[in-house]
């Protein structure tokens, strides 16, 4: 009986988290943006499956305890992919905040918003590198 209750709690918890994750990605519009960039809008359903599959592998990695012995080069690829995904999310959030048009207008930089965008991009890279190389090690 307690096992049944436990599995019901697990199932409903998973439902809530899963739908939350998908809703989050949908609101930010990262997937349509990528499909649009690569002109693969017709393959959207495959991208959905990729997200679901990735989430399930993520669950396995975080809740289970698998240990492979791949080389560091695979780590580089995974790291790059993780970073790009977070970067997409960050960019989507920044856009929602709507700060750029106002800022650009205030300082008379119309048409050159990209210079400000580079400030954000380089700042993110610098902050991230600083954190991993110095901040968490001190």
């Amino acid at each position: 009986m307690s096992l049944f209750i436990l599995s019901m709690i697990g199932l409903s918890g998973g439902l809530a988290v899963g739908s939350g994750l998908v809703a989050f990605l949908t609101v930010l519009g990262v997937v349509p943006r990528l499909a649009n960039l690569t002109k693969t809008e017709n393959l959207l359903s495959l991208y959905e499956m990729s997200i679901v599959g990735g989430a399930i592998i993520g669950i396995w990695f975080s809740l289970g305890d698998p240990a492979f012995s791949f080389t560091n080069s695979l780590l580089v690829i995974i790291g790059l992919a993780c970073g790009m995904f977070i970067g997409l999310l960050a960019a989507a959030l920044t856009e929602v905040l709507n700060v750029f048009p106002i800022l650009a207008k205030r300082i008379g930089l119309k048409g050159k918003v990209y210079i400000l965008l580079w400030a954000i991009v380089l700042g993110k890279i610098a902050g991230s590198l600083y954190q991993w190389i110095f901040f968490v090690r001190s």
Binding site: L80, A81, C82, F85, I86, G87, I125, L129
Partner: peptide, 11 residues
């Protein structure tokens, strides 16, 4: 380190 670079690339 690749993660950090990817962060910028993604944006």
């Amino acid at each position: 380190i690749p993660y950090s670079i990817g962060l910028g690339l993604g944006m």
